[in-house]
Computed example of a mutant assay.
Amino acid sequence: MADVAPGRPEVLFLGGRSGVGKSTVAEALHDLLVGADVHHAVIEGDVLDLAHPAPHVAHPEVRLAERNLALLWSAYRDLGHHRLVFTNTVSVLEQDRLAAAVGDDPVVTAVLLRAGDDVTAERLGRRSGGVVPSAQLAHSTRTARRLDTAIPDTVTRVDTDGRTPEQVARHLASLTGWLPA
């Protein structure tokens, strides 16, 4: 395990384009950690401010995702958890604000999951049960480019092409120090 002060939160921020496998990898990591009896929580960040009109557009000053993260995490902390897997497309760009919402000066590992356009299109197609609208794939591609060029050097890039979710999860567990390599 990572050498961390007792009680200090450890957070894995998983970001990446739509269809890269964030949720699937988080589930595989959850299963891996459960199997090793490593206490943790998983929060799917994309739903923390999912509403219409979009709160981050209509009321950006409210920071609803961060507020909801703080509330959810406090419930896990009350139960004794100190490790968090947090998935969200742009979490790797907003890791400072999200870490502040977690509180207690967390140890942060930020990872950008990457995948090629063909692989992403196939994954999105499976998710939607058919053909992916070209606008959705184009948005995913633009997001991938934006994330890859805008993230700080402290973010680890992990390619998912040709790897199973379990292989990626093992890599992430090693990166965080939650399981040995």
Rank of each mutant, 00 (worst) to 15 (best):
W73E: 05
R8S: 06
L179H: 04
A121W: 01
D153E: 15
E61P: 01
V25W: 08
V4M: 03
P133M: 01
G19S: 02
M1A: 11
V131Q: 11
A75P: 00
P6K: 06
Q95D: 12
G15C: 03
D31T: 13
V47Q: 12
G15D: 00
R126N: 09
P55K: 10
H52P: 02
F86M: 06
R142K: 13
T89N: 06
H171Y: 12
G103H: 13
S140D: 11
V132N: 00
P106W: 10
L50K: 11
V90A: 13
L93R: 09
G21E: 02
D148N: 14
T143S: 14
P9R: 02
P6G: 03
R170G: 05
H30F: 07
E10G: 04
G15M: 01
V62A: 13
D148K: 08
R123E: 12
A54S: 10
V119G: 14
S140E: 02
V168W: 03
K22E: 07
D96A: 15
D148M: 13
S74L: 06
V57K: 05
V107G: 04
G129S: 02
T89L: 10
S23L: 10
A2S: 13
A51D: 14
L113W: 13
G45E: 05
L32N: 05
D46N: 09
V20F: 05
V108Y: 04
R63W: 12
V102E: 06
T87P: 05
D104E: 15
D78M: 10
D159Y: 04
D49S: 15
N68E: 05
A101P: 12
H30Y: 04
E10I: 02
A2L: 12
S174N: 09
L98P: 03
T24H: 04
I151Y: 10
T154I: 08
P106D: 11
P55R: 09
H81C: 08
R8V: 06
R127C: 02
V4H: 03
A65N: 05
V38N: 07
A51V: 05
R163Y: 08
I43M: 12
S140F: 00
A169H: 04
V90Q: 11
V25I: 13
G103N: 13
S91T: 14
L98V: 03
L147V: 11
R8F: 01
S74W: 07
V4N: 03
A150H: 13
L64I: 06
P133I: 02
A100E: 15
D161S: 08
V111F: 12
T87V: 12
P55N: 08
P180N: 03
V108R: 06
H139S: 14
D117H: 14
T109N: 08
R83E: 03
W178H: 01
